[in-house]
Write a protein that binds this DNA or RNA. Structure first.
Lengths: 349, 349
DNA sequence: TACATATGGGAGAGCGCTCTCCCATATCGC
DNA sequence: GCGATATGGGAGAGCGCTCTCCCATATGTA
């Protein structure tokens, strides 16, 4: 109803059209467009002019049909069945995920690739996603998962599609992955807090089904053990603001004289600081708090949060690099790249 | 290095293969697979069995080449140049966006489509995205934009790709869109606060370049005007938690005796409540707070937030429906669908 | 019975591209 | 000057599918 503006349904020009305009063969135009073989400079010039004149853009379907490449990749977000706090929509809003996804998109952009976003919430989804890849809709997958029982890498490998995972799988599996030295990160947090003269540490851990959470916690405890602190009261959170607040309240009950907190994500650190304020504790005066990730909340919130930085953009770029490498020449050997965490000192500790 | 598991590089079976196994022609198999014409039941049975036996999956590129459909859509997130607070990565982490994106993915899933995610941050991106569509990588676009000067719909229409926008464009443009009756939402907030006996209202608005922000604000003011309240002190926020907190602090300075707050997003409402607590005000005892969106923070935070709900899942589904309709039969007339907001009463008001 | 009309299956063209051959011409070594 | 070798261009097959014809058979009508 109302106004109706016609869309220009121009039949896109084909290679043939360009060839006719340029006065050369289809093959030559293809060579120029794809830089695939030597072509005399003056002919290249003519062809480029013809491409310009016709507004030619190669048809991806036709190209894919012969190259057997879609020039597309999928980002699969899995593991939403871990716990309610990590529900799909919820997970998408995690600042950690935002940074990672932005990094992926940025790393893919130079290749002219925009990732297809998929949520794998159950086995039916796994099957649908596998079929999607088998149809040739995408050449490979970037897996971001918190689900310990990951079948997707095998399924995808079964249809000839490489995948690269963010984080080491919970159970050994032949997948390439990019990860952080989480244990080292936890140790750095303890070391920093200890260097501040703190001696009564607690921890707000992530879900302990996730290797990363376990590692951070283990590193933190190990760090304190080196300072003679044998026991670290710990409450488990779900990486969210509210779970951090709740865990902190619990810890305040259990260890009222605490003076140092390590939260396994910035969001939980934020929640913990909130709870500490509510309990009348000054941060960092009474209690020092260290977060994890170095995502936006760490920089922005007041007090700004001292944190263990994950170089997520670099990790995303590495995932993309590994995947594209594996797509270009399917050397099926899984590999792993581990990045180092970095202590970012701000106000909270 | 290390272990090297070979990937099964099985050459996928083609229609031809299935036809041979089933003892029928390629055309018949195609008809059965696509349900495109009557085929005798017993032959269908034979074909299905052959499909099963060969593990046949249609090749998307070959199909696209002839149908001129990619069976893919893009989700374009634009307008990150509006302000720093709405920076791409930042915007991706907005719970509002998470709900919307989850809704889109869910609505697309039954069609076996996974949306390609694109960020349009500048004009070069617009060009790259347009080229992407022109190549036939996607049949249409879902636009989520806060940028007032949107060129993308025209560019996409120019290459024969329909698009559906979330929210009415700031400047009139021939695009289909789905939106909320924001003014009505603002009015509902005022009405509810007034019914609670409040009489000294303030507002934490969204960025006023965005029509939705203006409308909510206008509705809110109009609602109060009906109760004799001619002036509503207002501070502009950026939809984020911190901007809400900051705006609230400002308002507490300017109107210390305020007793009602309308924040144009739940995140800002959360920030405002935090600021109110810091100032020693009880919520809802001293000050009642109404948010907007009904996203996760509204439900989870304490006090839980009374809010104006946007039915984002339904809106996302409608966007998808409109887009697919326009792809299936390109009736280029732009249309619009407006959803009604709903007052969700919780603890904060 | 003879003809018109459904009904269901096969043949084959062609979508737009890439890529392997093959051939014409230019360049080189002796 | 003559064969060997680059170099650069064209011809044409074929990727896997859809879809329009066309034909054989079954069904309906007088």
């Amino acid at each position: 109803m109302c106004y109706n503006l016609a869309m220009s349904a121009d039949p896109s020009p084909t290679l043939e059209d360009v060839a006719r305009v340029a006065g050369v063969s289809r093959a030559t135009v293809s060579r120029v467009v794809n830089q695939t073989r030597n072509v005399a400079p003056e002919i290249q010039e003519v062809v480029f002019r013809a491409v310009e004149a016709t507004g030619y853009v190669p048809n991806r379907a036709a190209r894919s049909l012969v190259t057997r490449r879609s020039e597309a990749v999928g980002v699969v977000v899995a593991g939403t069945n871990l716990s309610d706090s990590l529900h799909a929509g919820q997970f998408l809003t995690d600042p950690f995920f935002g940074r990672l996804l932005t990094g992926i998109i940025g790393a893919l952009k130079p290749r002219g690739i925009f990732p297809a976003l998929m949520l794998a919430e159950n086995e039916a989804d796994d099957v649908a996603i596998t079929a999607y890849f088998k149809q040739g809709n995408a050449d490979g997958a970037l897996l971001i998962s918190t689900y310990p029982d990951e079948r997707l890498p095998e399924l995808l490998a079964g249809v000839g599609r490489p995948s690269v995972r963010f984080a080491r799988p919970a159970r050994p599996a032949p997948v390439s992955y990019v990860d952080l030295a989480h244990r080292e990160g936890g140790r750095m947090a303890a070391e920093h807090l200890a260097s501040l003269g703190k001696r009564r540490p607690v921890a707000v851990s992530g879900p302990l089904e996730i290797p990363a959470s376990l590692e951070r916690q283990a590193g933190y405890e190990e760090g304190w053990a080196r300072h003679g602190c044998a026991f670290v009261p710990t409450a488990e959170g779900g990486f969210t603001y509210d779970s951090g607040e709740l865990a902190m309240k619990d810890l305040l009950d259990r260890a009222p004289d605490l003076d140092a907190v390590f939260a396994a994500s910035d969001l939980m650190a934020q929640g913990a600081i909130h709870a500490l304020h509510d309990a009348g504790r000054d941060v960092p005066g009474d209690v020092a708090v260290v977060g994890f990730d170095d995502s936006a909340p760490a920089r922005i919130s007041r007090p700004s949060i001292t944190t263990i930085r994950q170089p997520l953009e670099a990790m995303a770029a590495e995932m993309v690099r590994l995947l594209l490498e594996r797509i270009d020449q399917p050397s099926p050997e899984p590999t792993s790249v581990i990045f180092d965490p970095e202590l970012i000192v701000r106000e909270s500790a």
